[in-house]
């Protein structure tokens, strides 16, 4: 049986690149979608050369909501799986002081991804099959002073994915929520991350592939994060608000 195409949104991200390789190595045609997509030519060549699969490039801006339906129409084929790796951390101090900057973070992590995944959900539902993978974040599980604008938008995205999963259950469409802890990528470069809690992009890709195969609902990539977040969730707000996090 020939493998279904995988659409990757935010294809330039390190996690997205690792996902593209992981799925291509298993024979899936790949659709790479990103801003300035023409510059992804070398990535296309690499995937085609290594894995002998078809790869196409698609211009995509998650903030351009009106274009989302047309973007999906223009794909060479409706993908079997979509992975949304789009995200924007922003600078918390700036997000706190500048409402426009904050809105950009919120729209990039929540509004935009929710919009494009809604369009795809409709098509998948009509077809009666498909897998939707949303990369959210543990930062959305509890707001912290150091990144609550990013965290809040990821919280919105996580809730959106959970609702979407609920809606599509029994309709052949599966939704995976990925809550990676720290991942060593461009987003976190230069941060002093604890190695035991930090996954490599290839690990995230492998975990996503497994979750899609096994129809898992919510994954944390490194299991230790489930425990970490469990503990963080237990701290009473009275104490939590005084901690420097």
């Amino acid at each position: 049986m020939s493998k279904t195409p995988v659409l990757i949104l935010g294809a330039r991200s390190d996690i997205a690149r690792a996902c593209a390789r992981h799925f291509a190595a298993r024979g899936h045609p790949i659709q790479l979608a990103a801003r300035r997509s023409a510059a992804l030519g070398p990535d296309r060549d690499d995937l085609e050369l290594r894995h002998g699969v078809e790869v196409s490039l698609h211009e995509f801006d998650v903030l351009d909501l009106p274009a989302h339906a047309g973007f999906v129409d223009a794909l060479p084929a409706l993908p079997g799986t979509v992975i949304c790796a789009v995200g924007l951390m922003g600078d918390q101090a700036r997000s706190a002081a500048d409402p426009v900057a904050a809105a950009q973070v919120m729209r990039s992590n929540f509004e935009g991804p929710a919009s494009i995944l809604s369009v795809l959900a409709e098509r998948f539902e009509a077809r009666g099959s498909g897998v939707i993978v949303g990369i959210s974040s543990v930062a959305g599980l509890r707001g912290r002073a150091s990144n609550y604008v990013y965290g809040a938008s990821k919280a919105g995205f996580t809730a959106f994915l959970s609702g979407l999963r609920n809606r599509l259950a029994g309709r052949g469409v599966h939704v995976v929520t990925v809550l990676p802890g720290f991942v060593a990528t461009r987003m976190t470069e230069g941060m002093d991350l604890p190695p035991k809690l930090t996954a490599q992009p290839e690990e995230v890709a492998a975990a996503i592939w497994r979750a899609a195969e096994r129809r898992r609902d919510v994954i944390y990539v490194r299991p230790v994060w489930r425990a970490v977040m469990g503990i963080i969730g237990l701290v009473p707000e009275r104490l939590f608000k005084r901690m420097s996090l």
Partner: peptide, 29 residues
């Protein structure tokens, strides 16, 4: 991060690749 293989010419056996490509990946491919 510059780890892409870019072109292969089977007539000459010539591989063009970015400098960060690992030898193990060349063998795998």
């Amino acid at each position: 991060h510059l780890d892409r293989m870019l072109a292969f010419d089977p007539a000459r056996g010539q591989l063009v690749a970015e400098a960060g490509v690992l030898l193990c990946d060349i063998i795998d491919a």
